[in-house]
Design a protein around this nucleic acid. Structure first.
Lengths: 185, 185
DNA sequence: CGCAACATGTAAGCGGTTACATGATTAC
DNA sequence: GTAATCATGTAACCGCTTACATGTTGCG
């Protein structure tokens, strides 16, 4: 499932412009499926060309025409078809974890920096989801509640794990523990 | 951090061939940083060209020469430099969650299929990590223990969340609950 | 006065995936 | 005998990211 299909999916719940979709990617989809203008605009053009959406140009003064896209019947059946894949993937590409695999080559301060930066990011995502929930939670479909809850569960676990286990990454290098270990032998 | 740098990192704990690295990607790194031969072999050639690794060709009969790569001092300092980035990213691209956002367009059986397939994948990853831990756990650096533990925590949470909340995605479509809701009004 | 938001797009480039090409050895 | 393992590579392709290009309105 590519950006195109996700855009089509978003349009299945109502007409929107590329600009609108970008905001939706940032708010609700951001933490598990990112997309920028460079993907969204070409995706919408493609969908229009294939007849899966129609485009209404709304002239505005001082701004480019607002282009509002609406899903067609063809688009709906294409979408439903795409959703039939029983094995959608869930990919993680974590430079964060890859970096930490080599923590033994890093200074303690560097490791701490990486961890606290990650904790900040996690907190920000968590805040984002909470905000969104308090704003739109009541209008959400059960599916959206499920997905948001999934995100929260992952982020919370991630946060707790880092806090509880960060000592594993740094203590080995402290003078005290090194001495302690030697003395123990 | 790209595949090249991760390969270099793996080589920092001892010489290996492209084939060896692939196995390591599959076993220990697989669940958070995937790479295939099509990325690994060119990466190693590139690293050799840049002087970050040296290559020893070991002739074999009936097989292509085994090419064992070893990190150089230049390679080590390049690696340490690369590890200094305090903001390594952690990206998720989940067709799984994207699909479920549109669960209202799917048949219950389809939703179930997606969920149980995901649960199988999670179990497999979990098994993989456990196997790896029982095999190499004692030789692992604390960092590896941390990373493996992180993976286990994520996967376990993911599994539990799906099991506990799958009803959110399907019950709305059952005849009973639909009737129940109508009757309620 | 400056920045954020509104609004759309193009084009180059990069990095990774997939498919192809080859072929002997070993274990079941 | 047949499947998995060992072992290396190339090349086309695909999709996404980044940078560029443009310009107004409204808020603090």
């Amino acid at each position: 499932m590519d950006v195109k299909t996700v855009c089509l999916g978003m349009l299945s719940s109502g007409p929107a412009s590329g600009y609108d979709l970008k905001k939706q990617f940032e708010s609700s989809f951001g933490h598990f499926f990112a997309a920028g203008y460079g993907s969204i605009y070409p995706a919408l053009s493609g969908l229009a060309e294939q007849g899966y959406v129609t485009c209404m140009c709304i002239p505005q003064d001082g701004r480019p025409d607002r282009k509002v896209y609406e899903i067609t019947d063809d688009g709906m059946s294409f979408l439903c078809n795409a959703l039939e894949n029983p094995t959608p993937c869930h990919k993680i590409r974590s430079e964060f974890l890859a970096t930490l695999c080599f923590a033994h080559l890093m200074a303690n301060a560097q490791i701490e920096a990486v961890l606290s930066h990650r904790l900040e990011e996690v907190d920000e995502s968590l805040r984002m989801i909470d905000d969104l929930e308090s704003k739109c939670g009541e209008t959400w479909s059960p599916a959206m509640t499920f997905v948001a809850g999934f995100g929260k569960a992952m982020l919370t676990t991630s946060k707790d794990y880092i806090i509880e286990n960060r000592h594993l990454l740094t203590k080995a290098a402290t003078a005290t523990s090194a001495i302690g270990l030697r003395a123990h032998k």
